[in-house]
Design a protein around this nucleic acid. Structure first.
Lengths: 196, 196
DNA sequence: TCCAACTCCAACGATGGCGTTGTAATTGAC
DNA sequence: GTCAATTACAACGCCATCGTTGGAGTTGGA
């Protein structure tokens, strides 16, 4: 069988995403990643460095993926904000790994994160879109754009951050499994509604 | 020195909260907890069982504390919701451990959490308060009470869940360190505002 | 004063995981 | 065809940590 180092790398990263998302940096072992990929552990070290470098690499990869998958076009009103929130929610619903990686990273509370600069730029474009819509009078402007953008992401992300809380708070609604998305959209629209 | 088992227990739990909050279940070592408390490691095992039992114990303790510290009285309008959100935010600001413990727990994604029943009851009372206010026409009712309550907590908790995101999104505002609380209150009020 | 129960600790065995090393197989350049 | 570089893997050394054990100190009751 011919060497195929790109495929080897890809399979290792894929396995690493799954393991890190499920168990976090400390809970994951390099050997589990290697086993899941069906590749020898040593490859991880020569390709990606140590465990924390590998974590940073796969997180950066996932962030690039979501940036490409959930574009934020112009926000022409609260409904567009709601649609954006729903798109973020849907993306995370289909790719739960990213939120989980971000949360694991957040909990480690480092003074600086890998790729800080490009990630800051990425968020900056989101904030700018909200700011433009506010200046154009298309959405409410009582909440500063950065905070508004951040809180819209909060609405979409909280479900995945504390699923146990979501479950317990909805313990009463027997037949309401799927209202989350609708509630989130209404909430995002209200947050960005005009007028106090 | 006379024995003081209650004090020993208390100091061990206090140290465990700090360590678990900072490093999570997997990142924490029993020896670090013991060292921080100035007590022998073996006490942890005889008093609290193994590591995961200890985690469950301290989390339950912290939940009881917050339940007592942030009461939710009647919500007589969006301003009261905003005040409640701010109180939750403030509590977490002064006791960051609790959110972090909840997040660590959430990431482990267990089908059932310790103390599930009493915690469900606790959340139920919060949801009920929102539902009452909605029925009384004091706050908006487009968003179901359970979702609304959950999302208000999202607004307050997201800052602590992904601090790195909060930092990067606000990288531009040079002199706006402390707008988070105000933005949160406005957001909570808007979420619970009447009228679509 | 004696003793049983309890509290505390130092030291230990065992396990598991990180990162490395030694070696075999494969490739491509010449 | 030869050889240096690259890819792959099995096996290893080492260290950290979990959970336990054996024993010493302390208490309160009879």
């Amino acid at each position: 069988m011919a060497w195929n180092t790109d495929e080897t790398r890809r399979r290792l990263k894929e396995a690493a995403v799954a393991e890190f998302a499920a168990r976090g940096l400390d809970g994951t072992t390099m050997e589990r990643i290697a086993r899941r990929a069906g590749i020898n552990k040593e490859r991880l070290y020569t390709y990606f460095g140590d465990k924390s470098q590998l974590f940073a690499t796969v997180l950066a990869d996932e962030l690039n993926k979501v940036a490409a998958a959930v574009p934020l076009d112009d926000l022409d009103g609260p409904e567009a904000v709601a649609a954006y929130a729903a798109a973020v929610y849907d993306y995370h619903s289909e790719h739960p790994e990213l939120t989980r990686l971000l949360l694991w990273e957040g909990l480690h509370d480092l003074p600086e994160v890998p790729d800080e600069e490009s990630r800051t730029d990425y968020y900056r474009t989101k904030v700018a879109a909200f700011a433009r819509a506010q200046r154009a009078g298309l959405i409410g402007d009582e909440i500063p754009a950065a905070d508004l953008a951040f809180l819209v992401l909060a609405l979409a992300g909280w479900w995945y951050a504390v699923p146990q809380m979501a479950r317990m708070m909805h313990a009463d609604d027997r037949a309401a499994p799927d209202t989350a998305r609708a509630a989130l959209m209404r909430a995002a629209a209200k947050l960005s509604a005009k007028q106090a």
